[in-house]
Write a protein that binds this DNA or RNA. Structure first.
Length: 293
DNA sequence: TTCAACTGACCAACAAAGGT
DNA sequence: ACCTTTGTTGGTCAGTTGAA
């Protein structure tokens, strides 16, 4: 007889498998050996339990239910059950599709991050890290896009940067800011050459941003690199920067399509999520200048 | 030898985006 | 609008490298 894991492995990729296994375990832990015989009402009760005891995002809750559905599909397949208790069950929890615009960074805050950046040690990495920050706050790139940048994507004469098709983002050409040009030039002439000379494997000579041993960087590490000198509560998150930049741009720019191209969103609806209504902007302004601060 | 500064692999949680 | 997949992040942890 097939085990649950084997069943899942056949149908899903590794990350999905892990996520589903986790949620199924959550369910079976809750009902113990009664889990296999659960009926529609039991499933509902389980969802209610999750709702009450964990402050889960509606989407997460749906994931949990989805995993339970998969679990019963498995039981059907191996013949332990004849019926599916909840294949028709759908949750109606409201999902707030809007991106939480009010706690994003302002343009000034972002500028300030860039201007005041200082590295504590490893002076030779300072320019690289400044470039990382500038790519986040001026081009709103994702960490992955930054890691994939190659030398030929940077055109200093035209002050342009080419971004390849990301896993989700559309390829695009973005202008470079004046203050980036000199920074990039210095980095390419000096710092990057230095880093490259430490590379033994010689595999990464095309990548623009290099790690301290001249290797291609791991997107994962970018937030660590730029947060090195920051205290716990002042850490900046690359994704949040991107969202802030896009939201700030939307405020200035009336044409959503321009912002869509800038951010590389494939769907206009994604860009639309960043837009605040006038009422929300007012509400946020009230919150911001409230005397309690 | 010790230490800082990573890397790389993993996990849980969640968000974004793709397909239909 | 629903179903499904996968990237990102913040953790942890062990390992590596180069400098003090």
């Amino acid at each position: 007889m097939k085990t649950l894991k084997e069943y899942l492995e056949k149908k899903y990729s590794k990350s999905t498998l892990n996520s589903n296994l986790y949620n199924i375990r959550r369910f079976t832990d809750y009902y113990g050996n009664k889990a296999e015989k659960a009926n529609y009402r039991d499933v509902l009760q389980y969802i209610e339990y999750l709702r009450k005891n964990y402050d889960l995002h509606p989407k997460t809750l749906k994931h949990c239910l989805y995993a339970v559905k998969i679990y019963f599909n498995y039981l059907l397949e191996i013949g332990k059950r004849k019926d599916h208790p909840c294949s028709e069950l759908n949750l109606k929890d409201k999902i707030n599709k809007q991106i939480q615009v009010d706690n994003l960074y302002t343009t000034e805050t972002l500028e300030n991050y860039f201007e005041t950046y200082k590295i504590r040690k490893k002076k030779h990495l300072e320019n690289r890290n400044k470039i990382l920050i500038s790519l986040l706050i001026y081009q709103a790139l994702t960490v992955r896009e930054i890691a994939e940048l190659e030398i030929q994507d940077i055109n200093l004469e035209k002050a342009e940067i080419h971004i390849k098709n990301g896993y989700r983002q559309q390829k695009r050409i973005l202008p470079l800011q004046a203050k980036q040009i000199l920074l990039f030039y210095n980095y390419l002439e000096k710092d990057r050459e230095n880093l490259l000379s430490k590379n033994q494997t010689q595999k990464t000579e095309n990548h623009f941003i290099l790690g301290q041993y001249g290797e291609k960087i791991n997107p994962h590490g970018i937030s660590k690199m730029i947060n090195e000198t920051r205290k716990e509560n002042e850490k900046i998150q690359p994704m949040k920067i991107r969202q802030s930049v896009i939201a700030n741009l939307l405020k200035k720019e009336n044409d959503t399509r321009i912002v869509q191209v800038f951010s590389g969103h494939k769907k206009a609806s994604t860009t639309q999520q960043y837009k605040q209504t006038d009422l929300e902007i007012l509400q946020n302004a009230v919150n911001l200048y409230h005397p309690r601060k």
